[in-house]
Simulated scan of single mutants.
Amino acid sequence: MAPPGLEPALEAEALALGFHPRRVEGGVELEGPPGLHQEANLRLRTASRVLLRLGSFRAHDVGALTRGLAALDLRRVWAGEGTPRLSVAAHGSRVPAAAVPAAAARAWGLSSVGRAGALDEEESEEGLTLLARLEGEGCTVSVDTSGGPLHRRGYRQEVGRAPLRETLAAGMLGLAGYDGVEPLVDPMCGSGTFLIEGAWLSMRRAPGLERTFAFERFPGFDAAAWEARRASAKAEALPAPRAALHGYDINAGALGTARRNARRAGLTLALERRDVKTLVPPVSGPGLVVANPPYGKRVGESGELPELYRALGATLRRSFGGWRVALLVPDEAGLIRALGLPEARSLPVRNGGLRCRVLLSRL
């Protein structure tokens, strides 16, 4: 699964890792040897979750749905203890979504099954979570192998006033073609998410090294094989970023948060308090400028936003000639015009439920 709008970035990332992805709505599909779901959880920066498909069958009515669920082999993911949680997604199905939990309980000999919300939002890490996706006369059942959503890298214990998920930050770097070698500058770095994600990419450091996953609780989980997989990923990581990374913010408190987050991520970042109006490139370029400017909906600056966006655009055009730009902005035509980015490519995404745009441009 991928955050909405980032399917192309996830597909490109999976290809670069040697997987064989097929892009679908909401993510990509992968096929491969046993353990592929572990590798995907460990290495994919843009994915929000990794689901392992357990089976597909016809479900033209509730009876067929119950029989199909009963025929699934859950032994590799569930030892029969506790109560599975079920998330249901129904699109044009002949079986109503509300009927699925009761059918699952009958199929699996349980008094009831737990209810899980949409997996792109659900935060729970405990217990087994299954997804039943019904479309037309078909039903596909998958298990969540990630547990907590994959934007939880393990390093960010503090966030700024308008937090940016790590998966969205990584996806934007991918959409911008960031290679981990060229300079990276964030003029409004907040809690440092873009810079830390860029640094880990530059170091070839797998994003899942510092967390646990739901598949570690599956029956038959081979802890030794998993530790060997993690050790291999650790050995590939470089000791320091190959790129120059610089962050700026006018808020001193935000810079303190970014420093502490970077320290927990094993990094030392070049951070400086600076007004965007006075910003100049800290190193010779070209490189990539990436930012998540304030939206106003959360940070209380809506009256000042057009002026701020005009100042940001003017600085970029004046001082960063030849650099590329990737900005995450609200889906508001006036603010996008205020930036004045030349021939900017605009891609729709969502950030925290808000309709946004990723603007990509070369200055």
Score class of each variant (00 low, 15 high):
41 N>S: 11
199 A>D: 12
147 G>A: 02
20 H>K: 15
157 Q>T: 12
6 L>W: 07
346 S>R: 13
264 R>F: 04
199 A>F: 04
273 R>F: 04
91 H>G: 09
15 L>T: 08
134 L>A: 13
241 P>S: 13
293 P>H: 09
16 A>W: 02
107 A>T: 08
305 L>I: 07
97 A>L: 08
122 E>Y: 00
101 P>R: 01
222 D>N: 09
176 A>K: 09
305 L>T: 06
309 Y>M: 08
99 A>E: 15
97 A>P: 00
204 R>N: 01
333 A>R: 14
149 P>Y: 09
283 V>W: 05
242 R>E: 00
233 A>G: 10
262 A>F: 07
75 R>C: 08
182 E>Q: 09
210 E>Y: 08
199 A>P: 07
31 E>T: 14
343 E>S: 12
324 R>I: 03
227 E>R: 13
332 E>Q: 14
235 A>W: 00
50 V>H: 06
24 V>G: 05
178 Y>S: 03
65 L>H: 03
36 L>Y: 05
1 M>C: 03
99 A>W: 08
179 D>Q: 01
304 E>Q: 13
116 A>M: 04
142 S>L: 10
226 W>T: 11
231 A>H: 01
170 A>E: 09
321 G>Q: 15
240 A>T: 03
4 P>R: 05
283 V>I: 09
290 V>K: 08
19 F>V: 14
220 G>E: 10
217 R>M: 00
145 T>A: 15
70 A>P: 01
165 R>A: 06
305 L>G: 09
318 R>C: 10
197 E>N: 09
28 V>F: 00
238 L>D: 03
54 L>V: 05
34 P>N: 12
235 A>Q: 03
28 V>M: 06
318 R>D: 13
302 S>F: 10
165 R>N: 11
1 M>K: 03
307 E>W: 04
311 A>Y: 05
316 L>G: 07
337 R>T: 10
355 R>G: 04
176 A>D: 13
44 L>H: 03
29 E>W: 13
105 A>H: 01
293 P>M: 12
296 G>K: 14
128 L>H: 02
312 L>P: 13
15 L>A: 14
12 A>K: 10
344 A>D: 07
31 E>C: 12
162 A>T: 12
155 Y>N: 03
334 G>I: 06
276 V>D: 09
143 V>F: 02
48 S>R: 14
314 A>F: 02
43 R>W: 12
183 P>N: 06
43 R>K: 14
216 E>F: 00
263 R>N: 03
120 D>H: 15
38 Q>P: 01
115 R>T: 14
109 G>Y: 02
26 G>W: 01
203 M>R: 01
277 K>S: 15
76 R>I: 02
335 L>I: 08
223 A>M: 05
269 L>F: 04
216 E>V: 08
212 T>Y: 07
184 L>P: 06
264 R>N: 13
334 G>T: 04
61 D>N: 13
277 K>N: 13
264 R>E: 11
128 L>Y: 06
21 P>R: 12
161 R>A: 15
89 A>E: 15
228 A>E: 15
234 K>M: 13
42 L>K: 01
353 G>V: 01
288 L>I: 09
157 Q>F: 06
63 G>E: 15
111 S>Q: 12
101 P>W: 01
217 R>P: 06
12 A>H: 08
298 R>Y: 12
301 E>S: 14
89 A>W: 07
111 S>I: 01
